[in-house]
Design a protein around this nucleic acid. Structure first.
Lengths: 226, 226
DNA sequence: CAATTACTGATTGTCGACAATGTGGCGCGG
DNA sequence: CCGCGCCACATTGTCGACAATCAGTAATTG
């Protein structure tokens, strides 16, 4: 059995707010007024303030002393930077996996995830596919064996999820995505790190360009970008 | 003139604790008891706890619910991971600078920093040299133009500074360090990114091996590693 | 005598109230 | 009519007190 862990109230508030942000329920630029949210959620202002402050440290919220906190706005350049950094982290992970001889162990899990992904694709469930997609990349990072990398990745992956949620990604073909991932897993199985990195970067760049191209209208929907 | 900004008390406490940790005044494994520290520093327990929680998000402090927080212990593998990630971030920055044609602008600042570094080396001031060394690498990151990278770097650079403080780095020759940095700046000036990356990685690996080799006795001084 | 349970002391988590700070509007003087 | 300064409101920041939880110890029971 899994241990029943009662997270501190503050942590639960943090998780709730973070989920709301990365799922696009709280849009960039939206004000997070302490007194309102505290009453709405049902916690004290101090507890909520801690949560907001924690999210500001994670970079999801912008706070200025004695001013209302807002969900961080995302400029086009922020998106470019985000996907660029993402490529760097994943490329590093792939190279480490191959160099450490962990390729076989990793792909065995990656293939299993691809199978799950295929199931979601057949049901046209975008939310499930996104969730499993993240599992794929999390697995890649974990098998690098670098825990600090995992910490940095977590921060980046959150923002990626947020961007994906905001851009209603008119994902062309869900099955194509599954194929892309399976392809990457195959190349890793062959221990060809550079080929895998190339595929990964191409894949990420494609998605990034797709989103950046339509970003103005997404950002305009909220507060005008900048 | 610079605007006089009165930081909130909580942020000042955070900065004070963070400085104490990265400068080695608070050693890994040391307990951070709320009531004690609050009285000692002269703030309320709530404010101090916020600060401790913030530092736990930065990864400098380990907290378990309803348990005493401690300064995060650093295993040998943590150090290896740290310097490995550091290499990744800086390599990325160098490649971006050269690719974006920012090499000339960057090296002009880097050379100036090297001059300052030389002054510190002549006075055998290790603390000054460390401070200027960080400026060098911060500049490198900043000129990459990627703000998200700067955020991740900040987190990594803090830990690096902590490790350097803890290992009383019997720095062989301070002037040699200056030469190493100047050499890197020169290669960047030639727009040879890969050569610069090679030099940088060699330099970082050397320092990392040096520290890892003697890490057990450093960690043992506090709580036994692990 | 051993294992379990209940208690005690210490520490962290949560809260409501109060102080500090910033913003917008009103009134006054030019 | 315009500009300046003052005032009240809203929001954030800080605090001390109380509740929840944990580790270690002593008492209890088979």
């Amino acid at each position: 059995m899994e241990p029943i862990q009662t997270l501190p109230l503050r942590d639960r508030v943090i998780n709730a707010l973070r989920d709301a942000i990365v799922n696009g329920e709280l849009v960039p630029g939206q004000a997070l007024v302490g007194t309102e949210l505290a009453n709405q959620i049902g916690v004290s202002q101090a507890t909520l303030r801690d949560a907001i402050y924690a999210l500001s440290l994670e970079g999801l919220v912008e706070t200025v002393a004695y001013h209302v906190s807002t969900v961080k706005t995302l400029s086009k350049k922020d998106i470019e930077d985000l996907f660029s950094v993402r490529s760097m982290l994943e490329s590093y992970a792939i190279r480490q996996i191959v160099a450490a001889g962990q390729a076989a162990a990793a792909v065995s899990e990656l293939y299993a995830i691809c199978d799950e992904m295929e199931g979601a694709a057949e049901q046209d469930s975008l939310t499930d596919l996104n969730r499993i997609d993240r599992m794929f990349h999390d697995t890649l990072i974990d098998f690098s064996g670098n825990q600090l990398l995992a910490v940095l990745w977590n921060s980046v992956a959150q923002r990626v999820q947020q961007v994906l949620s905001l851009s209603n990604q008119q994902q062309e073909n869900l099955r194509q995505i599954v194929l892309n991932h399976r392809e990457i897993a195959q190349v890793i199985e062959n221990e060809d790190a550079e080929a895998a990195v190339g595929l990964m970067n191409t894949h990420i760049s494609f998605v990034a360009d797709e989103i950046c191209g339509n970003w103005h209208q997404i950002a305009l929907g909220t507060n005008g970008g900048q």
